[in-house]
Write a protein that binds this DNA or RNA. Structure first.
Lengths: 146, 146
DNA sequence: CTTAGTGCAAAACCTTTGCAACTCT
DNA sequence: AGAGTTGCAAAGGTTTTGCACTAAG
């Protein structure tokens, strides 16, 4: 959070209350992959008025600053999560095709693969994203009953 | 293509000319990840009139049938590519953050990872998608010149 | 004070849907 | 003939933008 204040001062960006509460919302919902609309309604419930357009602009800014990671789970809207130093490069997502729930898992096997591919392809790789699609335990169970 | 005709007859689906030319478009552009709008405009140029809504409906149908794979590269629209038997489970994408170009590469190291994760997480995994983000050779070169 | 940021409403997109006309089988 | 399909236009949903007003540095 202090690290975040620093990043702001370095750019020509202003540290407004809106920007702080948006980031705080992500810190309060560490593993939830919030969308713009969700952030907006969470803040509304806490009677922190903020324009939806501002939420969108803030989300984009925080992504540029490397504070948030923008991602897509195929449900028609962008979702975001905080990039904590710890799991920067090594957590991925399991997406259930039935209920849409997203679970995370840790893994770092991909780093080797990444450097190998970077060399072979002359691509300067900065990041990767791995998603597994399938059916979660609950949905598998529910399906058997039918 | 014949395989495709067979799949249609098995369902209660009709093999219309629109569906054929949409699929043909993908066969003619094997490594291009076309969007609905692009398919529509390609067909328009070849004076094959087709409604945009029909393109969308056909894309969805072909995805359900396992003929096309729907994917998202973060540019605000869905893109599709043919699933050929050969590379069903083992090709991934390098996405350039500057120019947006998408390159493919082959790899099958992930199958082991997939089964390991399936076991650990009780998730029944049916598919995965791996994307690498970074900078392509051309954009790296262009950047050095500035 | 100066420059950046906010809020609102409108606009811009992509995608889906209702319905009458149409076409494969 | 009958079921599924098409095209069009309208509606839906997410994200962006113009502009007058406000607030941070």
């Amino acid at each position: 959070m202090d690290d975040f204040r620093k990043k702001f001062r370095q750019g020509q960006y202003k540290l407004t209350s809106q920007r702080q509460i948006v980031l705080q919302t992500f810190l309060d919902h560490q593993d939830e992959h919030l969308s713009a609309e969700e952030v907006h309604s969470i803040l509304r419930q806490k009677s922190n008025e903020i324009g939806l357009a501002t939420v969108y602009r803030t989300l984009e800014l925080l992504s540029e600053l490397g504070v948030l990671q923008k991602m897509d789970f195929g449900d028609g809207r962008s979702r975001y999560e905080v990039i904590s130093d710890a799991d920067m490069h090594q957590h991925h997502h399991l997406i259930c095709l039935t209920c849409g729930k997203v679970r995370e898992f840790e893994d770092d096997l991909l780093d080797n693969l990444e450097t190998a591919i970077a060399r072979k392809s002359n691509f300067m790789i900065t990041d990767h994203q791995l998603k597994f699609y399938g059916y979660c335990q609950e949905c598998q169970a529910a399906n058997k009953k039918l």
